[in-house]
Design a binder for these strands. Sequence first.
DNA 1: AATTAAATTGAGCAATGGCTCAATGAGGGT
DNA 2: ACCCTCATTGAGCCATTGCTCAATTTAATT
Lengths: 196, 196
Amino acid sequence: MTDVKKARGSGRERIFRAAVEVLMESGLEAAQTRSVTERAGVGTGLLNHYFRWPVLRAAAWEAVFEDAPADIRRADEAPRAAIGRFMAEAFAPEARLYWRLWIDAERLAPHDPPIAEALDRIRTQLRSALARLLADGVSAGDWQLPDPAATALRLDALRDGLAGLILAGDPAMTTDLARQHLEALFAMECGVAGGG
Amino acid sequence: MTDVKKARGSGRERIFRAAVEVLMESGLEAAQTRSVTERAGVGTGLLNHYFRWPVLRAAAWEAVFEDAPADIRRADEAPRAAIGRFMAEAFAPEARLYWRLWIDAERLAPHDPPIAEALDRIRTQLRSALARLLADGVSAGDWQLPDPAATALRLDALRDGLAGLILAGDPAMTTDLARQHLEALFAMECGVAGGG
DNA sequence: AATTAAATTGAGCAATGGCTCAATGAGGGT
DNA sequence: ACCCTCATTGAGCCATTGCTCAATTTAATT
């Protein structure tokens, strides 16, 4: 070994943390074992000693999204404030990394069981957190929704679709416009007449 | 050469047609040059003599979607009928192949210029065809929409998102449910109160 | 037939990327 | 010291895949 280990912890932990970092930088598909071992400062063999790449990759992916469901509605946050944040953060520049990871996971899921399982877990949690938030807003009288769970699913799916357009470089789609469309859907869901 | 050429035409044409077939069977990412030459019944060198793989792949992809924009609204079809078809066909089993090709293209576009250009062309045509259909329905008094173009974009994006959920194997999403959500959006866009 | 150009072939190149494995190092227990 | 176990290394294996290129066949022209 050279001398200075940048990161603390055992090789196993360092590899896992490095995997998370590499995923955030490169996305799911471009990420490679060599980038991970390089960043962790370990030999290539150690990664394969502790992990299988598809499993490590899925675990690191899940770690990235671990806190997301709880962040839908923060402690003591009013439903209105949480929805405001949801809209504001949905297409914020800082979210780009997460869109890419998310859409990569959707693409890989059919051929990558570990990713499919992780995606299912996080998606279920995210969607029920959003549905709960919407239902709480109804209880609080902030808005009306006939079926909060269905609305959550549509908001989720529309956000996915809009994020996909931005990532795919659709020249007619900007982050601002995407946010407006998402807000338009929410307004319609609440019974306000549709608009552009 | 063996003897019986399955397909007519020059090697160049046979390769192109084989590429289209392989795309439909394998999707954009799984498709390989060897599958194409094998199916075309030609040597591997011939493909590279006439094409560069990324270019051929994008051209074949575009050929698959070539007729789609015109098929949004068929000749002498009433707007109501066309929208009905749009909803019915959006998640039909026969459409699965196209969803996969579409979503593959969105994924590849950032790193694959030929695909990006083809995707842009088809997307623009599809979206304006849908917007025109929606506007015609307004003119015909079939429905009311404050901004048909914006509605077209939202229908487009929601369909993308829902198709992505199905393809990614979301256990909570079925083709029927997806159609209902898409129809729910259209109803809300037209001013009918939202529902699940 | 001879000549030229175009079509066609397929073994093999080169780069990629996950993973193996024999070797080495580092403690812990006796 | 001796042994045993676990951590660690990294050169190299192996499969994949787009693509090259020298050689061959086919076709048209004179």
